[in-house]
Design a binder for these strands. Sequence first.
RNA 1: GUGGCGGUAGCUCAAAGGUAGAGUCCCGGAUUGUGAUUCCGGUUGUUGUGGGUUCGAGUCCCAUCCGCCACCCCA
Length: 426
Amino acid sequence: MTQTLQAVRGMNDVLPDQAELWERFEETVRDWLAAYGYRNIRTPLLEHTVLFRRAIGEATDIVEKEMYSFVDDLNGEHLTLRPEATASVVRAAVEHSLLYNGPQRLWYMGPMYRHERPQKGRYRQFHQVGVEALGYAGPDVDGELLLMCARLWDDLGLEGIRLHINSLGSLPERLAHRDALVRYLESRAAELDADSQRRLRTNPLRVLDSKNPEMQPIITGAPRLLDFLGPESIQHFDGVQAILKDAAIPYTVDTRLVRGLDYYNLTVFEWITDRLGAQGTVCGGGRYDGLIEQIGGKPAPAAGFAMGVERLIALMRDEGGGSGTLVDVYVVNQGEAAARSAFRAAELLRDRGFAVIQHCGDASFKSQMKRADASGAAVAVIIGDDEAAAGEAGIKPLREERGQSRIALDRLADAVSDLLYGEESE
RNA sequence: GUGGCGGUAGCUCAAAGGUAGAGUCCCGGAUUGUGAUUCCGGUUGUUGUGGGUUCGAGUCCCAUCCGCCACCCCA
């Protein structure tokens, strides 16, 4: 009994109709990255499990329950499909001493893996474009990263993506606040709902994120992270905000924004849309000054972000981003001699740079013409026994009311060129 | 991972225990060699999968897979 084979849950095929949109997205992204002087880096999809445990944090959701981790049967290595790429990029930069030559502006694009329950905008294999500015202390780079994002939304034709930013302060400041927060929450533990009790243990900051109205009084009275920031942290945060104001980029300071990965400090941000249901974060990032050292490199500051390709493409699709077809000419042919002639005609046209589909397989002229039309080609080149014998080809424009003409094969490319670009282009 | 809803033709959807249908798409013809319109004809199928109840299951029950929504979390 043959079993129907399906893709692994949460892992999607991108079919040609969609892939064209992906390619347009990727092109825009490459141009945009080049405009800011970022350079591509490509790291393996597979890393030693310990890298992510160390970089992302043992107590995070990603490490606790979302990683595709396994033991290599052949040699016993503990490996993990990357759930994000910042750890990999930092590992690679350290391993190859990239920072020896000064700070590095890097970017990557590719699939990530998280074993979550799939939902619209949330998949087990998903794609990110990420940018990492290694060796820059900011706040100027933080500002650059945010300006970059704003420009990309514009380049992609996307509207309504809002910026939320916050500062987590330095690690000591963060820990001091955390201690105060935990003490405060424990003192009122009896009033906490089940969800908040759980968060108190796993990620106390998340308690402040509760949507339960009954928690609001407790949340309002909680110690605020902002009050624990020292002068340097405040100055940094002010610096970032000044850049945003100069660039006239609207933003909201969201003091509850904490991010789910342990390595962040100072600036953190998310770009959010409300058109994707529950998965509204389209891009997230921040500063991670301690990570390079933690991975074993010489201490150096860094900041970056990652954006969700599937989510952005879903938005592009909503904005009506259809994709035109790329075919210029469809070569209709019937009969053995005609088929040989058709190969020559098609190659001659390709020599001129035209995109050409040659009909393959038996089919009536009628059905070939139908396919020519459906292909989106502007012109059908028609070769039957008569044309083949005469060394000629028929040319029929498919998108305008002009009659069919016949022309010698060696003048075919000229004639098609005239049709597509006008007579004056000769 | 938890809860709720769903899955019928390639696609969009009908059929509420009694013969599986429509539109679209695709194929052929009207046109002995010519497309998107028109007209005529034709195929759409293990009703996600596996069990069960029943004389009889697309329909009811159980399991499972997949999707969607929310939670959780994040891209």
